[in-house]
Structures are given as C-alpha cells and as structure tokens.
Design a protein around this nucleic acid. Structure first.
Length: 476
RNA sequence: GGCCCGUUCGUCUAGCGGCCUAGGACACUGCCCUCUCAAGGCAGAGACCACCGGUUCGAAUCCGGUACGGGCUACCA
C-alpha cells in the first residue's frame, strides 16, 4: 500500500514555524517513500478563522520549497480538502454513531456545563462531563434532537484502558475512566477536531499520522472514535515541540514565529529547513548540513527525539550564513536584490556580491553593508573617521592627501588605490590600518565593511573625493 | 488538582551495556590569516550524562522511585 500522509493546519493566522517543522517531517517521509502528501485545512472552529490565512499557508510552504499532491487548490480523489466543506460527511458519521449507540445527543447548555465545572473545581474534583444526557431514552433523545439545539457526545466506557504504540514515544496507555464523554459534533453542526480528524484520516486513506506532541494527550479520544467506527488505527508518530528559549512552546512573545517574518528578515528557506529539521531529529552522524533533497533521503522517523528542542537564533543565523555562502553569485544577487530598494543600480549591487557574500548572515544585512554606495547620506562623525591616537586636524590633512592620491590614481582601479593609500601611510608615518580607518570612515561612514579600495572604486572617483572633503570638514 | 510526556556541555545534538577519562555543531575565549569586519584555519574552555536506588563482571545506555520542566485538561485546534 502506498504511503499517504497529510499535514493539517488551521487557518487561524499565518503559518507558524512549528507547523512548518511538522510539515517538513511529513514531507520528508512522503517523498522518501514515494508516497502522497496531502494538505487539509482544518477550519472547524468558525470563531477563529483568519482572513487570508490559507493564502499565507500556501505562500509560506511554497517559499519553503515544499510541494504536495492533494489539497484544496490541487484537488484529488478524496476531497474536498477543507473541513468546512465536508459538514455532511461528519454529520452522517455522527448520526451513525448515535444510531449504533456509541454516541448520544446532549442537550446540556453551555451555562450548565460551566456551572458544573465550577462546582467540580470547588470540590477539587476532576472536571468532566457528568453524563446527564447519557441516560435519556434513545427514542426521546431522537425526538428532542429533531427540535432542540444539541451536541453529539461519544459514550466513553467507564473502565478499561486504551493504548497506542507511538513510533516516537513507544507504548502509551490511558485509563478510560479519566476520559470524558467528549463532544463530537458541536451545536452549530460543525465537528470537533476529535471527530473530523479521525473521519478525514480514514476517508482520505491516510497511512501514517505524524503530528505535534501536543496532540498526544488527546490521542485516546481519537482511538475511541476509531473504535466506535470499527476502523483500523494507522501508525502514529508524535513529534516533539519546538520550544522558546524558556522551555515553553514557541510563541509570539519569544520573537518571530511566523515563516513570513523569517522571510522578511532575510532568512533563506534552505537554512530554515536545515535548522528546523535538526530540532528533534539527527542523522546519527556528525553531519549537519542538509538540503531538502538530502533530508528527504536521510530522514528516519525512528531517529526523531522525544524531548522538545529550544529555539536558538544564533544557530539559525549560522546556518543562514552558511547557506548564503553556498549560493552562487548570480543566485545570491537575485535574492539580495529582492531586499534592495528599487532605485538602487542593479549593476553596482551585482558588483558588490562577491565582496559581501562572506560577510552576511541574513539578506537584510547585505542591504546595510552596501547602502553607502547608493546614498550620500552617510554618518560623518569623528567617531568613525578619526582613528585612536590621532588628532582631528591631522586626520583632516591626511584625508586631503588621500584625495590627491585618489584623484591622480591612474588607472583608477583597486590595486592603484591600494598602492596609493599604502604610500600615504608611509609618507605620514602612520600604520596602514590608521589610514584605512580614516578613509573608510570618510568614504563609507562606517568603521567596518568589505575591501576599502574596491569600495572606493565602486563608489567612483568624484563621489569618493567629495566624501573625503566632507569628512575632513566634518571633523575639524 | 487530574492524565500524559520529557531530562547528555548555555543551546542543537552523537550515544541505543564495555570503543565514553562522553564525540560534533552553534555561541564563547585565544592564536593564525588580514586594510576593518567577516569568512577560513588551529587551539581552548564548557556535561560528575537531573537525583537516588536497583539489575549486571561492567550503565549515559536496562528497571524503579524522586525532583524539576513541559503538554493536555473547551461545543479551540
């Protein structure tokens, strides 16, 4: 039987980086097994829908380089792939369960349920549905259900246990008495997650369920639904959570959590995938640089960890720099270009690429490193122009001399400028680094940057001379 | 509170009974390279493998308990 796996985000906002990790693992497995990857939208909570969320899911995953086979826009033999379009399916199945006695309509109001919970809490009891509607005669229940607003609850056995053999966590067993009669169908006719996930996974012939660790506690509920339908339970694997630096589930307060944020901050999808894959999985060797294709062939569900992994921005940054350096110059140019203002001359920008590729960890940093070439509005403080142990007046004079050398540099190319500045250092009796410091500060407005003589030549003779002059004036 | 899960350097991790006086990577420190910053190279510091007990000739690796952390506990997913 060929493998069919799915990822099932809720359209409650833009794509969370944790969902991406889960999706990635499903993707690795599907592609490796030459199976089918399915995107299903779980929008059964009508209150939490966010406009445009589906677009954002599509954008985010596409950008990551993940492709899938069946989904809302791709179609497929098991659609529809949006749960809100499958309501009749869930309702029919819920009815069947009521018919077979495995579930029952419940007419308790939300107010009563709240009240009940409050009392249970006050008595320090476990909060759970008390089963009041369980004892209503089936016939009466059916009559009332036709007219009254109600939910459908699963009749959970009082005792016994239920267990799963999780591919990551091993065998886990739950006592049934701890599980309440969960709601399967809400009063608005929508299914709960617990019902929809089981029905859809079954109907869509999902062969392996890989999902986040936070679903582990509700797994017995799902098993009970499988049992009620008499369906076979596919193998499950729960994946450890991605945590914030404080050890709690990664959330907004930890900083960026959405793919689109990382994209906007200049991260590469290659780096994000590589980094993300390594939170919760390791190949068992000391290798750690992997492309998507490498991950597809190397990933093993048995190697997935149990413990959650903390988010480490520094490590992500490292992978990002590494993947930036792996890009060829033309490709890197294209990516940097997307972050540069339109009015910047692309030929000049392209020329900077070989000089900055080893100096950036994000694409956004590239922009900052070359902006001096595109705007004349640069810092001109003594701090970036006057090297330590030198007087402003003396530096201003040196800048003047540098100007002369640059003006008469012939040819006006990097080696000539380099030679000129070195000659100046000798003439002044300064260390070469001090001359560079002053000239770099004057010309780029910064104390750091790529090759100074390349910078000067790229800037152009006239602009370089202007800047030397302005810097000299600024510091005296 | 109840149920469930987890615990190897600050962080991501290798390890699945002897190869471990615990290896790699990020971050950190020093040196080299060098016009600065990076990148790169080399070196270093950093984990009594949460703790306690047991099994065994031998345990980071198996078992039990404890502690701490986390998740779930909705007509959310």
């Amino acid at each position: 039987m060929s493998v069919r796996v799915r990822f099932a985000p809720s359209p409650t906002g833009s794509l969370h980086i944790g969902s991406v990790r889960t999706t990635l693992y499903n993707y690795f497995f599907a592609r490796q097994q030459k199976g089918t990857l399915i995107l299903r939208i779980e929008d059964t909570d009508q209150d939490r829908l966010v406009e445009g969320a589906i677009d954002s899911i599509y954008d985010g995953l596409r950008w990551m380089g993940i492709d899938w086979d069946e989904g809302p826009r791709e179609g497929g033999a098991y659609g529809p792939y949006v749960q809100s379009e499958r309501l009749p399916v869930y309702q029919e199945h819920a009815r069947a369960l009521v018919g077979s006695g495995a579930a029952y309509p419940c007419f308790c109001s939300k107010e009563r349920l709240e009240e009940m919970r409050r009392e249970q809490q006050a008595r320090k009891e476990v909060t759970r549905y008390d089963g009041r509607c369980r004892s209503i005669e089936p016939r009466e229940a059916a009559d009332r259900a036709a007219a009254e607003r109600h939910v459908v609850r699963l009749k959970v056995p009082e005792d016994g246990t239920i267990a799963i053999d999780d591919a990551v966590y091993g065998r886990i067993e739950w006592p049934l008495h701890a599980i309440e009669d969960q709601v399967l169908l809400k009063s608005d006719g929508f299914p709960t997650y617990q019902l929809a996930v089981v029905i859809d996974d079954h109907l869509m012939k999902i062969t392996h369920v890989f999902r986040g660790e936070d679903w582990l506690p509700s797994t017995p509920k799902h098993l009970l639904v499988y049992r009620a339908f008499g369906w076979e339970v596919p193998p499950h694997a729960h994946l450890p959570n991605v945590l914030g630096p404080d050890g709690k589930k990664l959330a907004k307060r930890h900083g960026a959590t959405k793919v689109e944020q990382f994209r906007a901050e200049g991260y590469l999808p290659e780096a994000l995938a590589n980094y993300l894959a390594l939170i919760g999985w390791a190949p068992g060797t000391e290798e750690e640089v992997f492309s998507l294709a490498d991950l597809v062939s190397r990933f093993r569900i048995e190697q997935v960890h149990k413990a959650g992994g903390k988010w480490d921005r520094e490590r992500l940054l490292y992978f990002n720099g590494l993947w930036i350096r792996r890009l060829d110059e033309d490709e890197l140019f294209r990516r940097v270009s997307a972050f540069a203002p339109e009015e910047w001359d692309r030929a000049v920008l392209r020329a900077t690429i070989p000089h900055i590729r080893e100096r950036m960890r994000t694409l956004v940093e590239a922009r900052d490193q070359v902006s001096f070439l595109f705007t004349d509005d640069i810092p001109r403080s003594a701090e970036v122009i006057v090297p330590k142990k030198h007087e402003p007046a003396e530096v201003a004079a040196a800048l003047g001399r540098a100007g002369v050398l640059i003006r008469y540099a012939d040819p006006f190319d990097p080696p000539a400028v380099d030679a000129g500045l070195r000659a100046l250092a000798e003439e002044l009796g300064w260390p070469v680094r001090d001359v560079h410091y002053a000239v770099r500060g004057a010309v780029t407005g910064s104390r750091v940057g790529f090759s100074l003589y390349e910078s000067i030549v790229m800037l152009g003779k006239e602009r370089a001379l202007d800047r030397l002059e302005q810097a000299a004036e600024a510091i005296v």
